[in-house]
Design a protein around this nucleic acid. Structure first.
Length: 249
DNA sequence: TGGAATGTTGGAAC
DNA sequence: CGTTCCAACATTCC
């Protein structure tokens, strides 16, 4: 569920709730006053990276699905919801296993929309500038930095690095300018490929690196390691993915 | 079936 | 006080 494109799908699927008034609310979230929700209208539903934002008349809720969160529209799972919103027409928006908390409803004060790779306001030049200011940052950590690439997750990270033939342990400061440009461009481009594949239920079969054992380009075994400050899984080919600067010998 | 994973936070440790 | 590390959270799949 968690990467940015999946949140875009959620927003599209839940758009019908905008303008409706909450008739019933329940759930086991302890971070918000659920009893105060009935009677309030859904003013807007938005996303910023992996955040799903529910705008109410005078407040806003932020839902983060973490690793395991899920949602159901007009149906329920066989477990207690973190938050369940019911509407007069019988429709429902249900969230499970996620983190929910109130946020400042002045979203423009909280969120930098230009950092969201899924946003129309995504600003690649700004991302490059932010990256150039952190020359020691590793490529594998850079892609997971939500302040730079909001919405990018571990799958997108591995696929982008493979696509641009860049070794995950490369440092940002050592990248030739075209490689840095490709990193930023493909973080955006792959996220939209991800979105289309996910909608068609064919995402996994398009994975070239993530969870794979063999490089589809050069056919040597992929390396797997928990790399970088983030220590998230990386799958990469030592032969096709160039490292900048070269590995110390 | 125990372990790992599309993620983040908060607090301990240094 | 800044940085880093790790447990905690929660669900599904292999």
């Amino acid at each position: 569920m968690p990467e940015g494109p999946s949140l875009v799908i959620l927003r599209e699927e839940s758009a019908k709730f905008v303008g409706k008034t909450i008739a019933r609310a329940e759930g086991n979230s302890r971070a918000l006053d659920i009893a105060a929700l009935p009677g309030q209208a859904i003013v807007d539903l938005r996303t910023w990276g992996k955040h799903f934002l529910i705008l109410l008349p005078d407040s806003a809720l932020r839902i983060h699905f973490m690793l395991f969160g899920s949602y159901r529209i007009d149906e329920r799972k066989d477990r207690p919801p973190r938050l369940s919103l019911g509407f007069e027409d019988g429709s429902e928006l249900n969230f499970y296993g996620c983190s929910i908390k109130p946020v400042d409803p002045d979203l423009d004060a909280v969120y930098d929309w230009s950092a969201d790779v899924m946003s129309p306001l995504w600003d690649p030049a700004k991302a490059r500038k932010t990256l150039r200011a952190q020359p020691d940052l590793l490529a594998c950590d850079a892609l997971l930095d939500q302040q730079i690439f909001s919405g990018v997750g571990n799958i997108i990270k591995n696929e982008v690095l493979f696509r641009i033939r860049l070794h995950p342990l490369s440092t940002i400061g050592a990248l030739p300018a075209p490689k840095l440009r490709a990193l930023v461009e493909q973080a955006h481009a792959y996220a939209f490929d991800f979105l289309e594949w996910k909608k068609q239920y064919v995402l996994k079969k398009h994975w070239l690196a993530h969870t794979k054992r063999t490089c589809p380009r050069c056919h040597i075994p992929f390396h797997e390691g928990h790399l970088g400050r983030s220590k998230r899984r990386s799958f990469f080919s030592e032969r096709c993915q160039k490292r900048y600067p070269p590995a110390p010998t």
